[in-house]
Every structure is written in C-alpha cells, then in structure tokens.
C-alpha cells in the first residue's frame, strides 16, 4: 500500500511541478483550486512554511531525505484525507463538465498556440484529427483515462507507461495551449490558422514594435519595463495577446507605475515592485531600486494607465501573430 501510494503521489507531483508553476498562479482564469492539489500531501506540507507562490521545486524536494521523512509522517494522517477528498471530488463533479470545479474557459490565443504545438508534436501518433489511436478521439472528446483538464496535463507531462505515449517536457504556457486546443478541436478551424513566425516577430520586437525601447531580454536592455527574457514561460498565449491589445487592462497589478512626492518635495516616478502598508519598493526612471516609507510622502498614487502602447491598430493580425510567436519562444537562459 505504501509503495503504491508513494508512487502515485510522485506521479501527480511530477505533473504538479509542471502545472503548478508561476504561470498558473498568475493566470486569473485557470480553474482553481486544482482538485489534484487537495490530494497532494506535498502541497499541505509546503504551505506550512512555503513560498507564497507554488513551490516549483517540488520534484527536487521529493528526492530529499527530509521530505521523504515528512511524507512518511504525514502519510497516515493524509491518506484518509486524500480518499475523502477523492470521494468529494467525484461526488462534487457530478453534473459538471469534464470533472472540473467549474466550467473551464478557453481562449482563442491559447487554442491557436496549442494547435501549432499539436501540429508539430502530436500528429505523428494521434493524427491530424486526433483519432489515430484506438479508443482516443480528441475531436469527439473520447479519452481512455482523462476526465479533467488536469488529467490531460498529467498524461501529457508523465506519459502513459507501457504505451507509446511518452512524457513531454512542456512548460505551463504550452500545456495550457495544448489542453485548450484538444478541448476545442471539434470547433476550431485550423485552416484559417494565422501562424506566427518568430523570426519576423524578433525583427518587430527590436524594430517597428519598439519593444526593446523599454524591455530588456535576459538582462540586456533597459529596465523601464519588466525583462521579457522568459516571458514565454511565465505567461500564456492568451495573456500575451491580451497584453498587446490592452496593456493597461492586462498588466500585472504589481507592475503598475507609481508616482510619489516626498515631504521635502522630491518627485519619484517608477515601476512598482512590491508594496506593504508602510512602504513601497520600486525601480525609478533612473533604474535605481528605491524603497519609500509612506509616512515620508506627501503624495502617493498608483497609476492605472501605462506607457506601453496598445498594438491593436498598430500591427496587423499577421504581425501580432509573429510577435506573439517570438514572445512565446522566450524561455529564459538555460
């Protein structure tokens, strides 16, 4: 029993490692809480004293002696909990679409991104229509063992032992794309798919799009706006798309600009990095890290607008697709 339990936990951990990334935490429209989190003893342990975002080194911790000890300690207590959660999850799922807590929302940009990945990574076995594997037909929503989107993510991430389905090392944005596409294959028309060209996107980034005027890539460039060197791992295709069309609406609230005037009349403008009741941390226009004590300020305001322009009317649909393809390809330094 112990072995079975541990192995299954390890399995789900590997996938949680993938899906429980910052991207998931940053995306407001992900179905949350993931039902799988409820089963996970790691989640429980880590919340005892953990990062305030989902621990991305779950797998790492799994292999450490302390974690294994903790696992064993908590196992007895958590096993009934896990079973209870499982029963609850199944019971709670009755009548809901595809075993989700609430109906998931899929976005065109994610579906499009998923369609591209599917075309390059999945069709060799599953076929263009997703129906080449007996018992599996994506268009018809027919799966062997998948119920929820989380199941899909786990199956893609872990593979299916003993079958040709290998584990895939996809990032969270990519998984979101693939799942979105698989769930919408029947209605999504790939014939009209406007596929982006990341090389052309890079030219736009540096040139006409003027992105490099404010954004650095992996430490190279200005710091006025966030470094985009790993944006393809942090944000989904949909979020990137929305940010390009409506930057003020889609930006992370923490990244908003702030305007402050100190009691002795000094004006400070910058991009917010952190804030609490008594102080605010920002990077100012001279690229200094500045920490302000609010009681020292005469004026303080969070600016809801942004200096980033909307590209809605500036770039054609094809150019937007190119730029997005380039941004999605930025995965940080390895």
């Amino acid at each position: 029993m112990e072995r079975v339990w541990n192995d299954s936990v390890k399995q789900s951990f590997r996938s949680l490692h993938k899906i429980g990334s910052r991207e998931a935490a940053l995306s407001p429209d992900r179905e949350f809480p993931y039902p799988a989190f409820a089963f996970s003893p790691g989640r429980c342990i880590f919340t005892a004293k953990s990062r305030n975002y989902v621990c991305p080194d779950t797998e790492y911790c799994l292999n450490r002696g302390l974690f294994v000890k903790l696992c064993r300690m908590f196992q007895r207590a958590l096993l009934p909990c896990a079973i209870a959660c499982g029963i609850f999850a199944i019971w709670g799922d009755a009548g809901k679409a595809r075993g989700q807590d609430r109906a998931p929302v899929y976005y065109p940009a994610d579906i499009k991104y998923g369609a591209q990945i599917f075309a390059s990574q999945c069709t060799a076995c599953h076929g263009e229509n997703g129906d080449l594997i007996p018992g599996v037909n994506f268009r018809a929503g027919q799966f062997k063992r998948v119920i929820s989107d989380n199941d899909l993510r786990m199956t893609i991430t872990n593979g299916v032992p003993g079958t040709a389905m290998q584990p895939f090392n996809f990032g969270a944005s990519e998984l979101t794309g693939i799942v979105s596409y698989l769930r919408n294959m029947s209605s999504f028309d790939t014939r009209n798919l406007l596929s982006g060209d990341k090389a052309r996107g890079q030219v736009l980034f540096q040139g006409a799009g003027k992105c490099a005027t404010c954004h650095a890539l992996n430490g190279k460039g200005p710091r006025v706006a966030p470094d985009l060197g790993d944006i393809g791992s942090l944000r989904t295709a949909d979020l990137l798309h929305r940010t390009l069309l409506d930057p003020a609406g889609a930006m992370l609230p923490v990244s908003r600009s702030v305007h402050a005037v100190t009691r002795d009349g000094k004006t400070i403008n910058g991009r917010r990095l952190n804030e609490d009741t008594y102080s605010v941390q920002l990077i100012d226009e001279q690229e200094h890290l500045v920490s302000l004590t609010k009681s020292d300020l005469r004026e303080y305001a969070v600016v809801k607008t942004t200096s980033m322009p909307s590209y809605k009317d500036k770039l054609s649909d094809q150019e937007l697709a190119d730029l997005e393809a380039y941004l999605l390809s930025l995965k940080g330094v390895k």
Binding site: A216, N218, G219, K220, R223, P226, D227, G229, D230, I283, E287, L289, G332, V333, K334
Partner: peptide
Amino acid sequence: DAKSGHAIWN
C-alpha cells in the same frame, strides 16, 4: 541582473 533579478547567463 542586480536591478531586475533576471538571469543573464547560466
């Protein structure tokens, strides 16, 4: 990067 906390090389 000491200002942004972003990795430059690895």
